[in-house]
Simulated assay, not measured.
Amino acid sequence: MSGQHDGPEPGEDAPIRVLVVDDHEVLATSLAAVLDREPDLRSVGVAPTLEKARSLVRTTTPDVVLLDHRMPDGDGVAAIADLLRLRPSLRIVMLTASAADHVLVSAIEAGASGFVSKTRSLNEVTAAVRAAASGEAVISPEMLARLLPRLHRGGRSRHEELTEREREVLDLVADGLTNSAIAERLVVSVHTVRNHIANLSAKLGAHSKLEALSIAVREGLLPDS
């Protein structure tokens, strides 16, 4: 998981609004309490079901959702598309325990911003929230390298729609680099990198950096992909 981030994007000084979606009451309320103790984070609710999650996304306008992939009324991964339709700017971080690779791949392709294990420390969970809010892919380079070959391939290429610099940024994203690391490599500002990622994501129809990467793999936009 990338613990690096460039600061929250939802607002200059506004706290990052987080919705916790998990049917384990003790875990969910504990996470919400931890979030509320952080000056730059705010819990906007706890949802024990996907139905409640959809309702709270409509009414509380969160920036980030921490989403369990196993919910009593459905599959959390399958609900990602619904949540993003309700709020396209939403960043969704999957809460995982021992999810199989095919589940993680499906989450990436659905638009998740990344993953955080339930066994991680609370500090790592809050770092994941901040990273997702700032547009980072919340995934370790090792996990990315493992999952990248498993992403689905095939489909029409939009290669001509991306600029040379956007393709260069996309390649560095595939290498697991954070926005800050990409900026350093290209000798540009982090703001410029964010703009490139926002532009290429819009061209590919992606909600997150990871989803943009999955579309790029599917459409053959990456070297040797």
Rank of each mutant, 00 (worst) to 15 (best):
D40M: 11
H5R: 02
V65P: 08
D63A: 11
L67V: 10
G7T: 02
R167S: 13
A174D: 06
L35Y: 04
L31H: 01
I182S: 10
V64R: 02
E38M: 07
V217S: 03
T29A: 00
V138R: 03
D36Q: 07
L122I: 10
H196S: 11
L170W: 03
D23T: 04
G135D: 04
V57A: 06
D175C: 06
E164H: 11
L35S: 05
V138I: 07
D82H: 10
D101L: 07
L222D: 08
L83R: 01
R150D: 09
L162C: 05
K118A: 05
L66Y: 04
L50A: 03
V138E: 00
T192F: 08
E166Y: 07
L170C: 10
I215L: 14
D73Q: 03
A128N: 01
V21L: 12
S180C: 00
S98M: 07
L31P: 05
D101M: 07
R158Y: 09
D36L: 02
R17Q: 12
E160P: 00
V64L: 07
S43Y: 09
R70E: 13
A132G: 03
L19S: 02
G154F: 06
T59Q: 13
T59R: 15
G154R: 09
R58L: 14
S214G: 12
V64P: 07
A33I: 02
R54A: 14
R130Y: 01
H196E: 15
N179V: 12
V190M: 04
L144K: 09
V26P: 00
L104P: 01
D82C: 01
E164M: 06
D36K: 07
G155Q: 12
V105L: 01
V129N: 00
G11A: 14
G135C: 04
D40Y: 02
G176Y: 10
L122T: 12
A133H: 02
R87F: 00
A137D: 03
E12S: 09
R91I: 00
R130N: 03
L148M: 10
I139K: 02
G45C: 10
T192K: 12
E109I: 03
A14I: 08
T119Y: 09
A202R: 15
L170F: 09
S43T: 09
V217G: 00
G220T: 08
E166D: 03
H5N: 15
L56I: 05
A128P: 01
L144H: 05
R87D: 11
I108E: 02
N195W: 04
L56Q: 13
V187Q: 14
V173C: 13
A212L: 13
V188P: 02
L19N: 03
T119F: 10
G76K: 01
A33T: 14
P8L: 05
